[in-house]
């Protein structure tokens, strides 16, 4: 079981959260062109290692949060509120 540190509620079990996907993709500007929108909707880096992702604490504070989680070891390195940035990089 993952224990996810919610910046508002502290460490909570994974089944209080919904996974909401890759947090590195950003909606492009309206005039950014088709390729940029294609990548935004469909293309994923899908790394084996550290991954910045959205989780929603639906059975807690209901906030969407950013979580840096390792897809190979399931370790969680950091979390942040929706408007806050995660640390630069995790070794």
């Amino acid at each position: 079981m993952h224990l996810i540190p919610c910046p508002y509620c502290g460490e909570r079990p994974q089944d209080e959260f919904h996974y909401r996907g890759d947090a590195t993709v950003k909606r492009p500007a309206p005039d950014a062109g088709e390729q940029a929108f294609y990548d935004y909707v469909y293309t994923r880096a899908n790394p084996r290692g550290w991954h910045d992702e959205w989780w929603q604490h639906y059975a807690g504070c209901r906030q969407w949060i950013r979580v840096r989680r390792n897809t190979l070891t399931h370790a969680v390195a950091a979390s942040a509120g929706p408007a806050d940035a995660l640390p630069e990089a995790t070794p």
Binding site: H2, Q14, Y19, D22, R48, E53, R69, T71, H74
Partner: peptide, 13 residues
């Protein structure tokens, strides 16, 4: 399980 993973290990929920 519902989140990206390469671990080949499932979780309890």
């Amino acid at each position: 399980d519902g989140y990206n993973s390469y671990s080949q290990r499932g979780n309890l929920p």
